[in-house]
């Protein structure tokens, strides 16, 4: 589903396959019917950010763009709306990558919070620009807080099976 761009991100190899798998799972979770939409973390973006920090070679602008388009499909929003937000957020993450990696997980979560908020602001701005300025209050930004709070959990969920997955691949 994600464009197999030779230049970018998901190269053939054990780790690439694992990254791809986690992204598909994150997207699947995003598709789950959620009881309260404002509590739904933006998991595809969080997983993308995780791999951008810890596996820089695997995800880049192309995968962020492709994932954004898929999220646009799921959201029913304009084509390219989330794609734009995802690409910008991923770019910012790349810029601050070295800095963010110096902190521990909870301090990283604060950085992730800022990045997710930037993404939401872009999406909100584009929606308002499009004329969909429906009533969304500050509660709209709650998803970013939830997402940032999940950051350490996501770290363990992604990193622990990854080591096992790759150990199996090596055999």
């Amino acid at each position: 589903m994600i464009a197999p761009d030779p230049q970018a991100t998901l190269r053939i190899g054990a780790s690439g396959r694992y990254v791809f798998l986690t992204l598909v799972v994150a997207y699947g979770i995003y598709l789950l019917p959620w009881f309260q939409p404002f509590l739904r973390p933006n998991l595809p973006l969080i997983v993308l950010l995780h791999w951008c920090l810890y596996e820089l070679r695997r995800v880049g602008h192309t995968s962020a763009f492709a994932m954004g388009l898929l999220v646009d499909i799921a959201d029913g929003s304009l084509f390219g709306l989330n794609a734009l937000a995802y690409t910008v957020v991923l770019h910012l993450t790349q810029l601050f990558r070295v800095r963010i990696l110096k902190f521990n997980l909870w301090q990283q979560a604060l950085h992730v919070l800022a990045l997710l908020l930037i993404g939401q602001l872009i999406v909100m701005f584009l929606n308002v620009f499009q004329g969909n300025a429906a009533a969304v209050g500050p509660i709209y930004f709650l998803t970013s807080v939830v997402g940032a709070a999940l950051w350490p959990i996501v770290y363990f969920l992604l990193e622990v099976p990854r080591q096992r997955f790759q150990a199996e691949e090596m055999q």
């Binding site: 192309t62 084509f79 390219g80 734009l84 770019h91």
Partner: peptide, 21 residues
């Protein structure tokens, strides 16, 4: 470079949005 890619994808997104809208 990363900046060029960012600009490229931003341009594509904007064009897509305009076409879609």
């Amino acid at each position: 470079s990363a900046g060029a890619r960012l600009l490229f994808f931003m341009a594509i997104s904007l064009v897509l949005m305009v076409i879609d809208a």
